[in-house]
Simulated scan of single mutants.
Amino acid sequence: MDSTTPSPDYSLTMDQCWVLLDTEAVGRVALIVDSHPEIFPVNFVLERRAIVFRTSGGTKLWGAITSKPVAFEIDGYDAHDEAAWSVMARGEAELIESQEEKDAVDALLLEPWQPGEKAYYVRVAPKALTGRRFKVNRPDLWTTRLSDPRRSTFE
């Protein structure tokens, strides 16, 4: 079995999760803010087996550095294999303060997508990393929404 083939129970190994994380640029960070969950889309890079994103001061930054624990999630669909997958990391977030560490992240081309200053670098070091992949049902040609990515298998 190679590093991208799921195990028979569809669970992904930790290495498979890291490979998938490395193929994506956008994920979602889930935080507890004012006693309720909030989810924020972020673009990110992997740096030393950790997920790093940049943000401005505000709700996301405050939630990331005060919320224990945090979760991070990505998902996708492979039209060729007709399979969907998701990866979830759980851990704690920490503010990167060292300029040397910020420079290392910048060297990985972590460029904010949203305009405005994103001066704060946040690292999520997973304590748990899980994922799964599964075959999706074949879409019905006549009733499946046009935006459903499964349609690409018969278009």
Rank of each mutant, 00 (worst) to 15 (best):
residue 36 H to A: 15
residue 86 S to K: 03
residue 35 S to K: 08
residue 94 E to W: 05
residue 153 T to I: 15
residue 26 V to G: 10
residue 76 G to T: 09
residue 89 A to P: 00
residue 87 V to E: 00
residue 68 K to T: 15
residue 64 A to K: 08
residue 80 H to F: 13
residue 63 G to F: 02
residue 126 P to S: 01
residue 32 I to F: 09
residue 18 W to I: 01
residue 83 A to M: 12
residue 61 L to R: 06
residue 73 E to M: 04
residue 49 R to Q: 10
residue 115 P to S: 10
residue 4 T to D: 09
residue 133 R to C: 11
residue 3 S to K: 14
residue 35 S to E: 14
residue 137 N to G: 12
residue 14 M to F: 04
residue 11 S to K: 12
residue 86 S to F: 05
residue 132 R to P: 03
residue 8 P to C: 00
residue 118 K to L: 02
residue 122 V to W: 05
residue 144 T to W: 04
residue 106 D to A: 09
residue 78 D to S: 02
residue 144 T to Q: 06
residue 19 V to Y: 08
residue 52 V to Y: 04
residue 148 D to P: 06
residue 53 F to G: 03
residue 137 N to M: 09
residue 9 D to S: 13
residue 19 V to C: 05
residue 148 D to F: 13
residue 51 I to G: 00
residue 130 T to K: 02
residue 4 T to W: 07
residue 110 L to E: 02
residue 58 G to S: 02
residue 20 L to W: 11
residue 50 A to Q: 01
residue 43 N to C: 11
residue 4 T to R: 12
residue 102 K to E: 06
residue 126 P to I: 00
residue 43 N to G: 10
residue 77 Y to K: 09
residue 9 D to Q: 07
residue 101 E to F: 06
residue 3 S to A: 13
residue 65 I to C: 07
residue 84 A to F: 11
residue 139 P to T: 05
residue 138 R to I: 07
residue 144 T to N: 04
residue 152 S to W: 02
residue 80 H to T: 15
residue 151 R to H: 07
residue 135 K to R: 15
residue 118 K to H: 15
residue 136 V to T: 15
residue 66 T to P: 01
residue 6 P to L: 11
residue 22 D to C: 11
residue 99 Q to C: 08
residue 119 A to M: 08
residue 38 E to Y: 06
residue 113 W to D: 01
residue 30 A to W: 04
residue 12 L to T: 03
residue 112 P to D: 04
residue 69 P to N: 02
residue 95 L to W: 10
residue 41 P to F: 09
residue 46 L to V: 06
residue 72 F to S: 00
residue 47 E to T: 05
residue 73 E to H: 06
residue 123 R to H: 03
residue 3 S to Y: 11
residue 120 Y to W: 13
residue 138 R to W: 13
residue 62 W to M: 13
residue 43 N to R: 10
residue 5 T to V: 11
residue 71 A to K: 04
residue 5 T to M: 09
residue 45 V to L: 03
residue 49 R to G: 04
residue 111 E to C: 07
residue 126 P to T: 00
residue 53 F to I: 06
residue 53 F to H: 03
residue 138 R to M: 12
residue 12 L to W: 04
residue 145 R to N: 13
residue 17 C to W: 05
